[in-house]
């Protein structure tokens, strides 16, 4: 929108113009558009965001629709074809039991992408909620931050062992073994990864709520809820976005570490992290076996990162139009 807004950011402005702008504020030349469509139009013009989005969608399509096209069973053992390199029959080669790696990558991707996104979202929502509440309401700060300290100190492994012991059978009975474990894993990763986000968001909110614009909003009688939604949250988007991208990678890798320790998915259930872990010992013989899952995880994380960058830029009114 406003051409003059963009130019105000340029450092070569004269002091007079700057003063004029600061005192009078920008004059809207076009009628205001809704914030959402504004953000969307910025977002789809962001090259990084578009590229990230396309790659991410490709990955999602590949892992969820791919098995419809490439129909080899990911758990079928063809023992005569073990440890093969890439070929026409097996474009990604086979593993130590002769299972097709392409199918395993696709099936594994379904779990990994889902675990990554759901666990990250859970951690993010929890972290943001607790961070904003603690930063904004002084009464809650002490309690919520001590809770954060407690969760930071809890050792993850025993916690998971307890969760598995208490809930695995019940969840398996209610949702079937695989969905049950999925819920368990996602919850476990989510509730043990929200603390950094909470602390970071709280730190920013503490500073933000003393800013002039919050004071201004408060002085015209904006309710607390409105204040948080309209003024605080949009301003803590950047650390949240960074937490989100780091969170996805973290969730995928944590899942693999947990399967390795016998706390994750059943053994015949591939995930990217698990495929990568299993392949590490074969790094010298079959390098493609580590490259494929490693690349898949990195690409997912990178694409989400660029998506996040686009979102951040689109939400920042000062750099719109770039």
């Amino acid at each position: 929108m406003t051409e003059d807004r963009r130019t105000t950011a340029e450092p070569d402005l004269t002091a007079e113009v700057l003063d004029a702008v600061l005192t009078s504020g920008p004059v809207p030349l076009t009628p205001p558009r809704s914030q959402l469509s504004e953000v969307w139009s910025q977002f789809i013009h962001h090259k990084g965001a578009v590229a990230g989005g396309v790659v991410f969608l490709l990955i999602v399509f590949a892992v969820f629709l791919g098995p419809q096209i490439w129909t080899l069973d990911a758990t079928y053992i063809d023992i005569r074809a073990r440890n093969q390199g890439p070929s026409l029959a097996h474009p990604f080669g086979t593993d130590q039991l002769g299972r097709d790696m392409l199918s395993r990558m696709m099936i594994g991707g379904q779990t990994s992408v889902l675990v990554g996104i759901v666990a990250m979202s859970l951690g993010l929502v929890l972290g943001t909620l607790i961070g904003v509440l603690a930063g904004f309401y002084r009464r809650l700060d002490g309690l919520l931050m001590r809770l954060t300290d407690l969760f930071l100190a809890l050792p993850l492994l025993p916690l998971l062992l307890v969760m598995v012991m208490l809930f695995r059978d019940r969840l398996s009975a209610a949702f079937g073994p695989e969905t049950g474990i999925f819920i368990l894993m996602v919850t476990a990763i989510g509730i043990t990864s929200w603390m950094p986000t909470a602390r970071i968001v709280r730190g920013d909110v503490l500073a933000l709520k003393e800013r002039e614009f919050v004071l201004a909003a408060r002085s015209i009688g904006t309710s607390n809820l409105m204040l948080i939604a309209r003024h605080i949250l949009p301003n803590v988007v950047s650390p949240i976005v960074v937490s989100a991208t780091l969170g996805i990678a973290n969730a995928i890798i944590t899942e693999s570490a947990l399967s390795f320790l016998g706390l994750g998915f059943p053994p015949d259930f591939p995930t990217w992290g698990r495929l990568l872990f299993d392949a590490v010992d074969y790094m010298q013989q079959n390098p493609e076996r580590v490259i494929m899952p490693g690349l898949a995880i990195s690409l997912t994380v990178l694409s989400v990162n660029y998506l996040g960058d686009g979102l951040r830029d689109a939400l920042d009114p000062r750099i719109r139009g770039r």
Partner: peptide, 27 residues
């Protein structure tokens, strides 16, 4: 886990359904 997968497949050929589970060794 590799042995489990192999055995599951062989039993599958017989018509025996197998659910696999692995448990942390210290438990």
């Amino acid at each position: 886990q590799d042995s489990q997968a192999l055995i599951k497949q062989w039993w599958g050929e017989l018509g025996v359904e197998t659910e696999l589970r692995n448990i942390n060794a210290s438990v």
